[in-house]
Amino acid sequence: MHELSIIASIVEIAEAEVQKAGAQRVESIELEIGELAGIEFSALDFAWEVGVSQTVLENAERHVNRISGQARCSECDTTFEMQALYDPCPGCGSYFSEIIKGKELSVKALTVS
């Protein structure tokens, strides 16, 4: 389950920021995660508590901006909602498209105290 190692990376980022700010803990964290980023949201929820226990993120409020997938067809230029990676274009049926949104995987903001 790579969600745990993703959480470990988030903890690392948060710990560095807390230290830089001379703070002690994170009150809340805002994540941006695209639906095509390869993260299973339920697995992330499931692993979160274990992953952040006894770190600066323990008890932090977690906000996830979930970004739905969007792609542009390379054949006919149609822009469409992409639920799963490489769904075909609803306009022409082509599988070649460019993902515009949905690959995000970042820590947007932290509230520290």
Binding site: A23, L105, S106, V107, L110
Partner: peptide, 15 residues
Amino acid sequence: QAPGKTVLQIEQDIL
């Protein structure tokens, strides 16, 4: 002791 809360807009790529 940090005085109160601070919001840090960091926008860091997790990977």
